[in-house]
Computed example of a mutant assay.
Amino acid sequence: MKLTIIGCTGSMSGPRAVASSYLVQAWGRGPDGGRRRFSVVLDLGPGSMGQLLNHLDPAELDALAISHCHADHMVDMVGMHVYRRWNPAGPLDPVLTLGPTELMGRLRGVDGVGPEESYATEFSFHAAVPGTPVRVGPLTITPFAACHPVEAYGYRVEGPRETGTGVASLAFTGDTDMCEGIVAMARGVDLLLAEAAFVEGRDTVRGMHLTGRRAGQLAAGGGAGRLVLTHIQPWTDPAVPVAEAGEVYPGPVDVAASGASWEI
Rank of each mutant, 00 (worst) to 15 (best):
Ser48Gly: 06
Met49Pro: 00
Gly50Phe: 05
Gly50Asp: 11
Gly50Asn: 12
Gln51Trp: 14
Leu52Asn: 09
Leu52Met: 14
Leu56Gln: 06
Leu56Trp: 03
Leu56His: 03
Leu56Thr: 05
Leu56Lys: 03
Asp57Phe: 04
Asp57Cys: 11
Pro58His: 01
Pro58Val: 09
Leu61Gly: 01
Asp62Val: 01
Asp62Pro: 00
Leu64Asp: 06
Ile66His: 09
His68Ala: 06
His68Cys: 09
His68Lys: 02
His70Cys: 03
His70Met: 09
Ala71His: 07
Asp72Met: 07
Asp72Gln: 08
His73Leu: 02
His73Tyr: 06
His73Gly: 03
Met74Gly: 04
Met74Asp: 01
Val75Asn: 04
Val75Ser: 14
Asp76Leu: 07
Met77Asp: 09
Met80Gly: 05
Met80Thr: 07
Met80Trp: 05
His81Cys: 10
Val82Gln: 14
Val82Phe: 15
Val82Met: 15
Arg84Ile: 13
Arg85Pro: 06
Arg85Thr: 15
Arg85Leu: 13
Trp86Arg: 08
Trp86Glu: 05
Pro88Asp: 12
Ala89Ile: 02
Pro91Lys: 14
Pro91Leu: 03
Pro91Ile: 03
Leu92Ser: 13
Asp93Glu: 05
Asp93Ile: 00
Pro94Gly: 08
Pro94Gln: 12
Pro94Trp: 13
Pro94Leu: 12
Gly99His: 08
Pro100Gln: 13
Thr101Ile: 11
Glu102Val: 02
Leu103Phe: 02
Gly105Phe: 07
Arg106Thr: 15
Arg106Ser: 15
Leu107Asn: 11
Leu107His: 12
Gly109Thr: 12
Gly109Asn: 13
Gly112Ser: 05
Val113Ala: 04
Gly114Ser: 10
Gly114Thr: 10
Glu116Phe: 08
Glu117Ser: 01
Ser118Gly: 11
Ser118Trp: 02
Ser118Cys: 02
Tyr119Ser: 10
Tyr119Thr: 12
Thr121His: 12
Glu122Cys: 08
Glu122Gly: 00
Phe123Met: 10
Phe123His: 07
Ser124Glu: 13
Ser124Gln: 11
Ser124Ala: 13
Phe125Trp: 06
His126Arg: 15
His126Pro: 01
Ala128Ser: 11
Ala128Pro: 06
Pro130Ser: 04
Pro130Val: 04
Gly131Ser: 08
Gly131Ile: 11
Gly131Asp: 04
Val134Arg: 10
Val136Cys: 08
Pro138Ser: 04
Pro138Tyr: 10
Thr140Arg: 13
Thr140Leu: 12
Thr142Glu: 02
Thr142Ser: 00
Thr142His: 00
Pro143Asp: 09
Phe144Trp: 08
Cys147Trp: 00
Cys147Gly: 00
His148Met: 03
His148Ile: 02
Pro149Met: 10
Val150Ile: 13
Val150Asn: 05
Glu151Leu: 06
Glu151Phe: 02
Ala152Ile: 07
Ala152Glu: 06
Ala152His: 06
Tyr153Lys: 03
Tyr153Cys: 01
Tyr153Leu: 03
Tyr155Glu: 09
Tyr155Ser: 08
Arg156Ile: 03
Arg156Gly: 06
Val157Phe: 08
Arg161Leu: 12
Arg161Val: 07
Thr163Trp: 08
